[in-house]
Write a protein that binds this DNA or RNA. Structure first.
Lengths: 149, 149
DNA sequence: TTACTTGCAAACGTTTTGCACGATT
DNA sequence: AATCGTGCAAAACGTTTGCAAGTAA
């Protein structure tokens, strides 16, 4: 388990929620996954680990974790129902189109862009939301191998 | 109706699809909406205009329009099932959080960012996808009025 | 005329809800 | 002990599919 897990348990307590087995399990699964997971995938993984939780609990847990900004949704081309662990200070995502791996990168570069757009449009720009989609190094290696004779 | 509509009908013909009343209606509704619309909203608007189309047709029409890149999906915090007209050369969106109005802006500024991330991560970055969320001038005016005594 | 398109009804998968039981604090 | 959390079953919801009838080319 990543070292983020401890702060999660604290945050759950702080918010007045109880730390149950089901929540530990969902948190552990998400925080150790290199890619975004759907509720159904989390449920299946938890069951395969021997946990006896229900799919409904996964939904309700994700709802609370999202509310506490401990997890966030990833928006793919085809839908937006997969979750990843939220990482403080790394707001932007880099997704691999092949293996669906998720990486983070810092977004300081966007502040000036947001200001420019704000000035140009008259909008008060409050949030910027950026995702890059591409192919990760591992998958690039595989693809180039396949292309060879 | 916006002047984009003509090119739409051409593109539909080019792709071998037929230009039907239902498609004209869906196109007209989307191209004249200042905000993203869900299939259900498009259906209701069409019915309120006296058209006799079914919700299924709206789904199937959107599917084809998206395939032809005549419309695109907008991803909100809560879901990603609303559609807007696609505008050539304006890849990025600026959403009003209050009235859900959609504006476009050019994204040349992001090419260098994508290159930097690509170099740093080893990813082959193929797409960048940016949305800004804020409050539009009109809604800002309303908000500030409400705040006054 | 022929193939594409439509509408309805029904199927489907996902997400939510009601309620009694169980677990955490 | 009191409250919060859980699981099951069933309902609700959005979306897709099969098929007969209708329509554009």
């Amino acid at each position: 388990m990543k070292d983020t897990s401890n702060s999660w348990t604290q945050k759950i307590n702080t918010n007045g929620y109880r730390l149950t087995g089901a929540r530990r399990m969902v948190i552990d699964i998400i925080s150790n996954s290199p890619r975004a997971l759907t509720p159904a995938e989390i449920f299946i993984e938890a069951r395969s680990r021997g946990a006896k939780l229900g799919l409904v609990t996964v939904y309700r847990t994700l709802e609370k974790l999202e509310e506490m900004t401990l997890v966030e949704r990833v928006h793919h081309e085809d839908g937006c129902h997969a979750y990843i662990a939220h990482v403080e200070g790394h707001q932007h995502l880099l997704l691999c189109r092949v293996c669906h791996r998720v990486e983070y990168f810092g977004g300081d570069d966007l502040v000036s862009l947001a200001e420019t757009i704000s000035r140009r449009s008259g909008y008060e720009v409050q949030e910027h939301w950026l995702q890059l989609v591409g192919i990760c190094p591992d998958c690039r290696a595989l693809v180039s191998k396949e292309a060879l004779p």
